[in-house]
Each structure stands twice: as structure tokens, then as C-alpha cells.
Amino acid sequence: MASSRAQARIRHPRHQRRGEARLPAVLATLVAVALYLLLPQNLLLGPRFVLPTLEVFLLVPLLVINPRRMTRQNRASRTLSLVLVAVIAGSNLFALGLLIHDLVSAGVKDGGALLVAALQVWLTNIIVFGLAYWELDRGGPVARTQAPREELPMADFRFSQDENDGAVQEVADGSSISADWIPTLADYLYVSVTNSTAFSPTDTMPLSTRAKLMMSVQAVAALLTSLLVIARAVSILH
């Protein structure tokens, strides 16, 4: 009986798998690019506009393929989207390494600018790992909405909606089984925020080895940034 009710509800789901909107990902990417552009020159990998120009260059064809909703994908577009995230992540981790060097250096005088730069690196860390989780989990944003569940790759993350079907009616109605719910960028950004603040998973659990490794790298980067910023702020105040 419970199974038949679930099947009846899924025919009229609250969540429609129409294809995820492109705009949130574009805005998140542009914010990450802007945060990099505003970093001090000594934290940049090469001339200031080289990497941001490359990132925008990679973003343009992705917008052409899916200007409004993400419903189309081929091997080239999939590769471009993954390379874009990798470039942003690599440049931010490089900036983090230089930032750590400067924060522990006794000869650095402009501590205030470094604290602002640390905040920029930390925010970019949240954005880029949220984008990475979003791009990789269950085959990516296009596959999650366009492919039947039985054809999706194994999940990297288990969300609370994936196990809420047995809860009270108003909660179960929004679950993955009952409503055909699928995670969007906002859900992965939330995972990234909680991992960068709690330094561990909260309500969303990593399942795959790559998800665990990525969350570990993110948590360690966020922890190092936080500890060094606190230490530097204390030294400035004294």
C-alpha cells in the first residue's frame, strides 16, 4: 500500500525535473573570478587577468550550449565544465599556499590586507568545492535531471531527502522517492558551507572515495585559513 501511494505521488511530483537553471552556476563562477581578481598581486598565479580570462573563455561555450536551463551535454561540454572548476580550484589552492606563507612570515607588515585576502580565499574555497560537488555527483547537473534514476552513476553524496520517504506526510512528499527530488547547486553550496565551517559533514554524507577526499582537502584548507587568520589577528591586536 505504501509503495502504491509513493508511485501515485511521483506521477505528480512537487519537484519537476525540467533541467537545472544555468544562472546560479554562472553567478557563482563569476563571483569566484571576481574574488580572485581582487586578491593582492603577491597571491596570484601569474599576471592578474590571465586566469580570469581563461575561466571566462571556458564559461562562454557552456552558456552557448545551455543558456537558460541545463538539458544538453556532450563529452566536450562535460570536459569544459570540469576543467573550469579545476582551474578555479587550482588557482585558489595556490593562493592559499602563498597566503599561508605570508601569514606566518614575520616580515609582512600589511596584516589587514592579508586578513581580507584570507576571507576572499575562504569564500572562493566554498564556491569552488560546491561547484565541484555539483559537477561530479550522480553524473553532473544535466544527467541528474535528464537521465532516469536507474541510469545515473552511483551517488557521491547522500542527502536527507534520499531517506525521508518514511517520515510524516509533509516531509515524505518532498523526498527523492515520492517527489523525484534531485539536488541542485544550492544544496551542494550548503554542503560546502557546512564543511568549511564545521570541518566535517553535517546532514549530507559523502559516499564515494573521491567525495571523502575532496571534503577532506576542503576542510583542511578551511581549518588552516581559520587558524592562521585568528593567529595573525591576535598578533596584530597585540
Rank of each mutant, 00 (worst) to 15 (best):
T197S: 01
F94M: 08
D110H: 10
A222I: 09
A222G: 13
G111N: 05
A233Y: 03
A155N: 12
V56G: 00
A132E: 00
Q16C: 08
F94E: 08
M215A: 15
I88D: 03
P148F: 04
N195T: 08
M70E: 15
I177L: 09
V104L: 09
L237I: 12
H15Y: 07
R144M: 06
R5V: 12
A179D: 12
S208V: 05
R232I: 07
A233N: 00
L119S: 14
R22D: 06
H238V: 07
V85Q: 01
Q161G: 01
P47F: 13
L84E: 14
F57N: 07
L59N: 07
R18H: 09
S200Y: 04
Q146L: 06
L237G: 03
V220F: 10
W122P: 00
A76P: 02
G174K: 00
V128D: 04
P153A: 05
I65L: 14
V33Y: 04
Q120T: 03
A179M: 01
N125S: 14
L44F: 03
W134F: 08
L123H: 04
S208E: 15
G174E: 15
A233H: 00
F129N: 07
S91V: 12
L35P: 05
R72P: 03
F94S: 09
A89M: 08
S200H: 12
T145F: 08
L62P: 01
V31Y: 04
L123Q: 04
D162S: 11
L119R: 02
S176F: 00
M205F: 12
V50M: 08
V229Q: 01
P24N: 02
A219D: 15
S235N: 03
L44G: 05
L99K: 02
L227C: 13
V234C: 05
E150V: 11
L23S: 08
D102E: 10
A34Q: 13
L237P: 02
P141L: 04
A34D: 15
E170T: 13
D162M: 10
P206T: 06
L51S: 02
P141G: 05
Q120K: 08
Q16L: 08
L136H: 01
S77V: 12
R72Q: 15
E55L: 01
F57W: 07
G19V: 00
T202R: 00
M215N: 13
Q73F: 09
P206Q: 10
A198K: 08
T184P: 00
A2T: 15
G166S: 14
V191C: 08
L54V: 15
L45R: 05
Q146F: 03
N125G: 13
F57A: 14
S4E: 14
K109L: 11
L80N: 12
L27G: 01
R14Q: 07
F129R: 06
V142N: 05
S77E: 15
I230L: 14
L189G: 01
